[in-house]
């Protein structure tokens, strides 16, 4: 479903993504992990057609990222970390605008939106009467997730999707993506919340400084490394050594 070969992105002298290669089949939930500045968001932006790669190739659902970008965009949904929306539109206006960009007929779009409203416990009047600028962060996130799934894409990229969601919505969302994967959708899930990734994902990719460090099933990787948890494995791999001791030392500097 997703095939990435030697994908590289440079910003001037800086190498943000350095020749990463992986394959993701249909129906898999893949956790995409890495510390800040590792190149996760840049990779996701390349795979969604937002950024042109410097070199390397990628195909999504058989469509080449560089030569068939529009077709790739039709087949992916993306929830960006920023959770940006046009705040001067109402939720319904925003979702209908997104539906139009995917050429979804108005009636079908409305029906799909109503399904999401029910799932996320949103009220229809909020969606029609309030500008998105007046929504809470969690409500705005729900609208962004809806807008990513509205066109029923076979591949969905989530960049920190739980940010702002309350506990109930987060539980519902995790169940949603597991069901979507069972229905055959490919999910790429980028997050810093490692215990969620460990529970939800079939497989994890860990990158640091633009390079792919590890690729495998979370339980296998944890067992093979002897780290005990994915969190410990992650900190070992990405240079976060002796974090607890350093934190204790630092906290002691605040003694009166």
């Amino acid at each position: 479903m997703i095939s990435v070969q030697q994908l590289t992105k440079r910003f001037g002298e800086q190498v943000a993504v350095d020749g990463i290669t992986f394959e993701i089949p249909a129906g898999q939930i893949v956790g995409f992990l890495g510390p800040n500045g590792a190149g996760k968001s840049t990779t996701l932006k390349m795979l969604t057609g937002m950024l042109a790669p410097t070199s390397g190739t990628a195909t999504i659902c058989g469509h080449d990222l560089q030569s068939d970008t529009l077709e790739v965009k039709r087949h992916v949904g993306f929830v960006p970390e920023s959770g940006a929306v046009f705040e001067s539109l109402t939720g319904l206006e925003y979702l209908e605008m997104v539906a139009a960009l995917y050429a979804i007929p108005e009636a079908a779009a409305r029906a799909r939106i109503e399904q999401f409203i029910a799932f996320f416990d949103l009220s229809f009047s909020t969606l029609t009467d309030k500008l998105l600028g007046a929504y809470s962060k969690g409500m705005r996130r729900k609208v962004v997730i809806t807008s990513a799934l509205l066109h029923n894409p076979p591949v969905v990229f989530f960049d920190e999707p739980l940010d702002g969601l309350d506990a109930n919505a987060a539980v519902g969302f995790k169940a949603l993506i597991q069901t979507l994967a069972r229905e055959g959708k490919t999910i790429v899930y980028s997050s810093h919340i490692l215990d969620v990734v460990e529970r939800v994902c079939d497989r994890v990719l860990i990158i640091d400084k633009g390079r792919l460090l590890l690729d495998g099933k979370p339980e296998t990787l944890v067992a093979e490394s002897g780290a005990g948890t994915l969190e410990r494995l992650f900190t070992q791999l990405t240079g976060g050594t002796e974090l607890e001791r350093r934190a204790e030392d630092f906290a002691r500097t605040f003694r009166p």
Binding site: E87, S88, L89, E93, L131, G133, A134
Partner: peptide, 21 residues
């Protein structure tokens, strides 16, 4: 979309609490 955004303005986050269109 762009006409609506132009006419309504692009609001600053958090400014328009409870604002109706």
């Amino acid at each position: 979309l762009f006409l609506t955004l132009f006419l309504r303005g692009r609001s600053s986050r958090g400014l328009r609490r409870n604002n109706m269109p």
